[in-house]
Amino acid sequence: MSILETVRLTKIYGQDKNKVEALKDVTVSIEKGGFTTIVGPSGSGKSTLLHCMAGLDVPTAGEVLLNGRNIFSLSEEKLSMLRRRNFGFVFQSFNLIPVIDVYENITLPVSLDDKKIDKEYTSKIIDILGLQDKAESFPNELSGGQQQRVAIARALSNKPDIIFADEPTGNLDSKTAEEVIKIFRTCVEELGETLIVVTHNNDIAAAADVCITMRDGRIKHQ
């Protein structure tokens, strides 16, 4: 079943001589509960596609439908709240807020929503990600891999519908990257998450269910 669809998505930056067509008429459909990767060379538009799907960037034309509803018909306020409640994010680096500890970083989306933190669930995530003894550490005390795991925990903490990840292993060495990939699979298989990952790491692509290739703003093949 499709959980997210883009319909003729177009994104153009700049004007005239400096015009860049990052996305050209892109239509894709993401299956619920699946592990989808988007790959392609630099400048192919894969990050742009991810950002639009996640409601982080407004397209020049086209729609993004979450469970059938166009997310860009929402106000800025509602869109933020949508992201807070329905999506989880993992970026390539600098994911965490340096001044609060690991636990607070993980529970950030829920705190922003002023909701009560589900302590049991949070403990569960922390266990899955192997962060038990790091819960009170600060981001600058963690290695790159550990930081990335915290980011993933955060992405899970608000029980999102979809997790978006943009080059999540970009700054990691091969061994840690492998671990992260394993965790992703766990999220999909054991927690039933839908995962969309932008990467140019071939190993991630290999571990995915679906691989979308982009080139020069268009989908090459799915």
């Binding site: 933020s80 340096p98 989306p109």
Partner: peptide, 14 residues
């Protein structure tokens, strides 16, 4: 960057 991430994660403008 931090602000960007916070906004991505759901911090409203307000």
């Amino acid at each position: 960057r931090e602000h960007g991430i916070m906004k991505a994660v759901g911090l409203t403008k307000r």
